[in-house]
Each structure stands twice: as structure tokens, then as C-alpha cells.
Nucleic acid binder design. Sequence first.
DNA 1: GTTAGGGTTGTTATAATATAACATTATGTA
DNA 2: TACATAATGTTATATTATAACAACCCTAAC
Lengths: 130, 130
Amino acid sequence: MQKENNLSKNQQIIFNLIHKSPEPLKAYTILFNVQKKGIKAPPQVYRVLDKLVEMGKIHKIESKNAFVACRNSDCEISKATAFSICEKCEVVDEISDIKLSKYLSNFNHKKGMKFKRFNLEFFGLCKKCA
Amino acid sequence: MQKENNLSKNQQIIFNLIHKSPEPLKAYTILFNVQKKGIKAPPQVYRVLDKLVEMGKIHKIESKNAFVACRNSDCEISKATAFSICEKCEVVDEISDIKLSKYLSNFNHKKGMKFKRFNLEFFGLCKKCA
DNA sequence: GTTAGGGTTGTTATAATATAACATTATGTA
DNA sequence: TACATAATGTTATATTATAACAACCCTAAC
Ligand SMILES: [Zn+2]
Ligand SMILES: [Zn+2]
Ligand SMILES: [Zn+2]
Ligand SMILES: [Zn+2]
């Protein structure tokens, strides 16, 4: 089994790349960037991405089909994620706001559905672009 | 200019299809279903989908790349959307909760970003599947 | 040490989602 | 009419993601 924080070779390569990127990375951008390290085909990238998401090391920005490293002590394994996204410069920040997270985690659906997880994406203009 | 609630031919065809569907529809499912009505190519579908989203008549469920009709008086032109998604049966419901909507619309990012729009997706098990 | 199982990797092919680019046709309005 | 704008039609292609199968590397049990 995978020891905590002990990533396999490909996982380490791809996580490093995402972690040091200032912006969300798309799967094929990642592929292009790791081909010199021997990762040659899409399935290799997507497998690692799936695994890293599952571990809470990265998150998928659904509206952009792109991936960012978790900046928030691995987000309880990705159960509660929130992002701000600038519509102009496309900068993405992970929001870590305990109150917001608590509020949403405790939100109860009228229809009695029990939530295990949420993802929230805010859009607007960042300070620089406003 | 487009009069309110006055959709063009293709817009009407595609909106009707989505509106009467009990579940989110994907673009190519829509394409398949409207080919007998003369809409033959992907760009025709995607153009209409973009327009209907812009009008707030439908919403895109980003995590599923699928579209649902707005059940909530057109959601202030899609500025504030929230959905519950069952991870087992995949049923999707639009959440209309004034308090939640107010809370999120008034949420202010620490970094001073001014939000214009948000999308929230909750995941869990619906009553039937729980 | 051998064997069996799980996790990871490598590889080819293909499926599914989405857009570029350009020509044409309708609709509203000056 | 004549112009502008929105909507449509069409071909080709780009982008995102998965299926399917073989090989390899651990480690734990026998
Ligand atoms: Zn996180
Ligand atoms: Zn910006
Ligand atoms: Zn709505
Ligand atoms: Zn269900």
C-alpha cells in the first residue's frame, strides 16, 4: 500500500510539476512537460492525476479541466474544496476559510440528501484585473 | 435582439429536450436526439448550449459535462448556481436556497477579489441510494 | 525461495468532448 | 432598400479522456 507522502516515481514527477506551477495545468500540458522524463502516453498522466486527486494532493478545477496542488494541508482528502478564479487573467487560488468550509459541510439539503463532499468555484476579477 | 423567452428554432428544440429530461444531458446525446429535427453537427449544438447558458435557461454541471434546465426562475442569469449530485444513481437537483445563495453571494475573499458568480456542486447519496 | 496479489508502469488504439473557420440565411431596423 | 446583427449550416480538426492488455516491482504468506 501507498505510504503517506511517499509517492511513486511518476506520481512524484507529476506532483512536483503541478506543485511548482503558478497556474492550473492541463493534462496534455503535463504530458508535454514530462515526456523528457519518460512519461510518454496520456493514460500514464491521467492515472497519476486520478491517484493524486484521490490522495488530496491536487485538485481538479472542473470549469477549466486543469489541476492545482492543494495548498491547504490536503483538504481532508478533497472533501471540501473552494476556489477563486479570475475571469480575465485566469489566476486560480484555493480558498481556505474555515467558516465557509464549516457552513457548507453542515449544509443540509431539503430533500434529505446527505452530502459527503462539495466543490465550489467563485468567478470574478482579481485585484490586479479589477 | 433576442426577446425574453422567445427562443430561435434550434434553441427551442434543444431547450425543450433538456427541459423535459429527468437527468442532465450531454452535448452528443443532445446531438443524437435532435438529428431527426435537422440539427446535424456539433457546433450547432454547442452554440445553442452556450447561448442558453448565457440566458440562464440551462446550467452546465461542470463535473459531468452535462446540461440541465434551470428550475429556479432563471437564476439571475446563472450568477449563483448550486446542485446536489448523487454519486450512485447520478441524479442531479438544482438547489434553490435563498440563505445559501445570499451567504455565498456576500462571501468576500480575503485577497480582495470581487466575485460576480459562483457554482457549487455537492456530492453524496440521495435518499433512495443512501 | 517460491508463489500469489496488489499497485504501478508501459503501450496502442480509440472514444468523448469541444472549437476553428468560413459560407449562408434569417431578422430587425434605419 | 440597405445595413447590421444574430442565427444557422458545414467541414475539418483540436482537445480531453478512457479501454484494454501486457509487464514489472514489491511484499507477505506458504
Ligand atoms: Zn486543498
Ligand atoms: Zn486577474
Ligand atoms: Zn437555475
Ligand atoms: Zn441516488
